[in-house]
């Protein structure tokens, strides 16, 4: 998988966070919630509204605008 935005993934797909292109505050909060570069995450739901991702079953909803700035890959 080439790197792409988190919002491009389908529900059920797994990926690894490569880069976060958001502002410092948002990036920091993502990191603190366990969504830092290198984390393995699974897309639980991506249709309308925030994207829900899971880290070992722990679910976090990320607003679409922010999810677009999360770059993921294999």
């Amino acid at each position: 998988m080439l790197t792409k935005s988190l919002t491009k993934l389908n529900s059920g797909e797994s990926c690894r966070i490569q880069k976060i292109n958001a502002g410092m505050n948002a990036t920091r909060r993502l990191y603190e919630m366990g969504l830092n570069t290198g984390s393995n995450i699974k897309v639980v739901k991506n249709d309308i509204g925030p994207v829900i991702v899971s880290i070992y079953g722990n679910k976090i909803a990320v607003g679409r605008g922010l999810a677009e700035k999360i770059i993921v890959g294999d």
Partner: peptide
Amino acid sequence: SYFIMELP
């Protein structure tokens, strides 16, 4: 602001 929220 951005939306980040845990769904317990």
